[in-house]
Computed example of a mutant assay.
Amino acid sequence: MKLTSLRSLFASLVLPLVILMGLGLSTSALAADGQNSQQIANAKTSDADLWRAVKAGDSGYTVAQGSEAGVLINVVGNEGKNIKNEYLTPAMGVAVLGVFSAFLIFYFVNGPSKLTKGFSGKMVLRWSKADLIIHWVLAISCLGLIFTGINIMLGKHILQPYVGEGVWAALIYGSKTIHDYVGPLFIVSWILCVVKWMPLQTLKMYDLKWFLVVGGYINFGPFKGKHPDSGFANAGEKMWFWTLAIFGLFISVSGIMLVLPGLDLPREASMAALLIHGLSAIIIIAFTIVHIWMATVLSEGGMECMKSGYCDENWAVQHHNLWYDEIKENGTLEYKD
């Protein structure tokens, strides 16, 4: 066989095989490229879906234990934090500065409520020793919670920028520690206060008139010298009591929820407790400022009631006439020796 014939035969057999192999490799390469592109696209779509789910607060899988351990981002927690920063924190500032400033202005314009007939010198028993103890334990614990709570809520805005890191760390740690340990003392004294004094705080029709004439504390205009009827507790004191009773309950329950990690509450419940705690604190702070102003500076002779348990007879007649008439009639009027 000639060499030329062999070459022709080889070419006729091999060349088609080479062409087929080339086509096969090209098809495989194109298919591989297509598959890789699809995998990359799928991976990008998968990552996007993953992070979209994470931001939406969806729960994933984790070996960690605890409530909502599989949730990386809690939407409710973020929304609650925004509500606290945008609304509750400014509201607390208004409660502290606004209410205090308003009563300071009122004091300089109106002055205190003086006793019309002056001091009689006769002291009438108004509060028992047990009442005084309950009052001052409640008052001191409440003030402790207020000052530490204000630092926790507002300190980062009004103190932290002006003190060193070490000083601020000590202040915020001390505030948190005192707040946690004083809380139970407040709760116990609050319970005793509500149980013991509730019978004296029932609302009466004459309480409405007390509000209409601002309790007789106005020293000018048509309200000057108007001293409305009042029983053992006047309408303002009743309002303060029921505010403390209702929001004291809210602040106590929410506080327990916040300081006991063993409860393992869902994030939603914890955030709700934090917001309720903050709102209740704002209301109690505002009423506490009012109560302190009314009981001390604005009412001549009023502070003596909670110092000794006795009040001047003229003070009793002027501010709590119905109560004075009652104890005088039933024979329970008791003077200080």
Rank of each mutant, 00 (worst) to 15 (best):
T62Q: 15
T62V: 09
T62D: 09
S67F: 04
S67Q: 13
E68D: 15
A69C: 09
L72N: 14
V76K: 06
G77E: 11
N78S: 07
E79R: 08
N82Q: 12
N82D: 07
N82Y: 09
I83P: 03
E86W: 09
E86S: 10
E86R: 03
P90I: 07
A91V: 03
A91P: 01
A91K: 00
M92G: 08
G93E: 14
V94P: 00
V96C: 10
V96Q: 07
L97M: 08
G98Y: 03
G98V: 08
G98F: 04
G98R: 03
V99I: 15
V99K: 03
S101Q: 02
A102L: 14
F103W: 14
L104V: 13
L104Q: 05
F106G: 06
Y107M: 09
Y107T: 14
V109W: 04
N110C: 04
P112K: 00
P112S: 04
P112T: 02
S113V: 04
K114V: 15
T116D: 13
K117R: 07
K117W: 02
G118E: 10
S120N: 04
K122Q: 15
K122H: 13
K122E: 13
M123P: 01
L125V: 03
R126P: 12
W127H: 11
S128Q: 02
K129D: 14
K129C: 03
K129H: 05
A130H: 07
D131I: 04
L132I: 14
L132M: 05
I133G: 01
H135Q: 01
H135P: 08
W136Y: 01
V137E: 00
V137P: 00
L138C: 10
C142Q: 05
C142H: 03
C142V: 11
L143Q: 11
L145H: 06
I146H: 03
G149E: 01
N151F: 08
M153C: 03
L154R: 08
L154P: 07
L154M: 14
I158M: 12
I158D: 11
Q160C: 05
P161E: 02
P161L: 10
Y162C: 08
V163Y: 09
G164Q: 11
V167P: 06
W168V: 03
W168A: 02
A169T: 06
A170Q: 09
A170K: 14
A170H: 11
L171P: 00
Y173E: 05
Y173R: 07
G174H: 05
S175C: 15
S175L: 04
S175G: 15
K176M: 13
K176Y: 15
H179C: 10
D180V: 13
D180R: 13
Y181E: 01
Y181A: 12
G183W: 00
P184R: 08
L185Y: 08
I187D: 01
I187F: 15
